[in-house]
Computed example of a mutant assay.
Amino acid sequence: MQADLIEDVLYGPAQILGGSQLEDGELIQLAREEFEGQPFCIVRNWMLLDLLLTEAQEREVRKQGLQPTVLFISKAVFDSEACPPTGDGFITGYQKDFHGCFFESKDTLYILAGRGSRKHASLPAVTSLREAVKAT
């Protein structure tokens, strides 16, 4: 069951989105200049996941000033705080803000580079995926 949930998230239909077309070095320089002092991470092979939550769960998320969307990253090319380690797949916390190629969680700004995607996913599917990437 868990494998089916993960496969649907990773390989099921999704809306294709475009991130920044700048090279990694250019993005690092830009982020250091524009977002000085703010933790940031440059990512490729990313997917925005809009969580399908119950009304009560969604209310709780929104009470915190957040949106019920997380970012799945299969490749982090640079992390200003080196946590999580560059290259490892991970899932962010809920979305604080999202504009163009900038996704902000409660603690970190993620710069979306290259092509990515967006889709709806159930909380059990995202939980399964989070557990799977932690185990690798």
Rank of each mutant, 00 (worst) to 15 (best):
M1Y: 10
Q2Y: 06
Q2N: 15
D4V: 13
I6F: 12
E7D: 12
E7C: 10
D8S: 09
D8G: 03
L10S: 07
L10F: 08
Y11D: 14
Q15P: 03
I16E: 15
L17N: 04
L17G: 05
G18L: 10
G18S: 13
G19M: 11
G19H: 14
S20H: 06
S20F: 05
S20D: 15
L22H: 15
E23G: 07
E23T: 10
D24C: 07
D24G: 01
E26M: 14
L27R: 04
Q29I: 05
A31W: 06
R32C: 13
F35L: 08
F35T: 01
F35R: 05
E36K: 11
Q38G: 00
Q38T: 11
Q38K: 12
P39W: 08
C41M: 12
C41Q: 09
V43W: 10
R44H: 06
N45M: 08
M47L: 13
L48M: 12
L48V: 07
L48E: 12
L48G: 02
L48D: 05
L49G: 02
L49Q: 02
L49C: 01
L49V: 01
D50Q: 09
D50E: 14
L51G: 03
L51Q: 05
L52H: 06
L53Q: 06
L53T: 08
L53E: 11
L53M: 14
E55A: 14
E55N: 06
E55F: 07
E55D: 11
A56Y: 02
A56W: 00
Q57N: 08
Q57F: 00
E58I: 05
R59Q: 13
R59K: 09
E60G: 13
E60A: 14
E60W: 03
V61Y: 06
V61P: 06
R62G: 00
Q64E: 09
Q64I: 01
G65H: 00
L66Q: 05
Q67S: 10
P68A: 06
P68L: 03
T69A: 07
T69N: 00
V70C: 01
V70N: 05
L71G: 03
F72E: 01
I73A: 08
I73Q: 01
S74T: 10
S74G: 00
K75R: 13
K75F: 07
D79P: 00
S80L: 03
A82P: 02
A82H: 05
T86D: 07
G87D: 12
G87H: 01
D88M: 12
G89V: 05
I91A: 02
I91K: 02
T92S: 15
T92L: 04
Y94I: 07
Q95G: 02
K96H: 12
K96W: 10
F98L: 09
H99G: 03
H99W: 06
G100D: 10
C101Y: 10
F103Q: 04
F103V: 04
F103K: 06
S105E: 09
K106M: 08
L109W: 04
L109S: 04
Y110C: 04
L112N: 08
G114F: 10
G114L: 08
R115C: 11
R115V: 13
R118T: 02
H120D: 09
L123Q: 12
P124N: 07
P124W: 03
A125V: 10
A125F: 10
A125L: 11
A125N: 05
S128D: 11
L129V: 03
L129M: 02
L129A: 03
E131I: 03
E131N: 13
E131K: 10
V133G: 02
K134T: 11
K134W: 15
A135H: 14
A135C: 11
T136D: 07
T136G: 12
